[in-house]
């Protein structure tokens, strides 16, 4: 599970990195399109420049995400060192809470979590899923346009002129690999996030039990009814 939790963090980071890869792909496509007529090249420039302009806006979020991974790495190292020496691992609790932090949407700063907050987190996850689906469909539509308007004509002219098809094939491969990888990483991340939410729900129940026990000090926390 420890490896899976790290995969969860990696997935969290890679959702941001994928954005950068997509921008890079557009840049590569731009270079390949240099042979297009001027009108089509101008359209390609506009299409390419949009994600490049958006990229700086993603910098802060990417930096925060990399920071979380860096902290988690340090915590994991601390846990591994502790595992060699002892059975109780103090850093584990803090590591778990760091994962909670990653899960929370940026605008939830509530001090006291509740069942309602778990629902909010679930809703946040659903919204995120919807955003990624829209993003992938949008990217897919752009790629289809490029394939139809650029790669297929390139294929046909290459076949007619007898020139090698390596470059268009590489582009096609990259497009498919990136889209499929994006889907797999996101859904794996989502699966792990849902598991962490279930754990979080259990943790809130634990905290609420502590609070209710405060008003009932005879509770001994040993699972038995107070005598």
């Amino acid at each position: 599970m420890m490896r899976r939790s790290h995969s969860f963090l990696m997935g969290h980071i890679f959702s941001s990195v994928f954005g950068m890869y997509i921008v890079m792909l557009w840049v590569i496509l731009l270079i390949a399109m240099m042979g297009l007529p001027f009108e089509l090249l101008s359209i390609a420039f506009v299409v390419i420049i949009i994600p490049i302009l958006i990229a700086p806006l993603r910098y802060k979020s990417a930096k925060n995400r990399f920071g979380a991974l860096q902290q988690a790495g340090a915590a994991l190292k601390e846990i591994e060192d502790a595992l060699d020496e002892r059975h109780v691992v103090p850093g584990l609790t803090s590591y778990i809470f760091l994962i909670f932090d990653v899960l929370r949407p940026a605008d939830t700063l509530n001090d006291v979590p509740s069942e309602n907050d778990v629902e909010k987190l679930r809703k946040h996850l659903t919204n995120l899923t919807r955003k990624v689906i829209i993003e992938v469909i949008f990217q897919g539509a752009l790629y289809i346009l490029l394939i139809v308007n650029f790669l297929i004509p390139e294929f046909l002219s290459a076949i007619e002129q007898g020139t090698p098809l390596l470059v268009p094939l590489v582009f096609l491969g990259m497009i498919i690999v990136i889209l499929v990888a994006r889907w797999i990483v996101f859904f794996y991340w989502r699966l792990l996030a849902r598991r962490w939410l279930n754990f979080y729900q259990g943790f809130i129940a634990w905290g609420e039990e502590l609070e209710s026990a405060f008003s009932n000090p005879t509770n001994t926390y040993d699972g038995r009814e107070p005598t």
Binding site: A74, E78, G91, S94, F97, L98, D101, T108, P113, G207
Partner: peptide
């Protein structure tokens, strides 16, 4: 069992910890 020594952490705890997390 030898009690563990809790060492100072090389990483900072999350700034958005809830009170339940702080209690633990």
């Amino acid at each position: 069992m030898k009690p563990p020594t809790i060492r100072p952490r090389s990483w900072t705890p999350g700034p958005r910890r809830t009170k339940y997390e702080r209690w633990v």
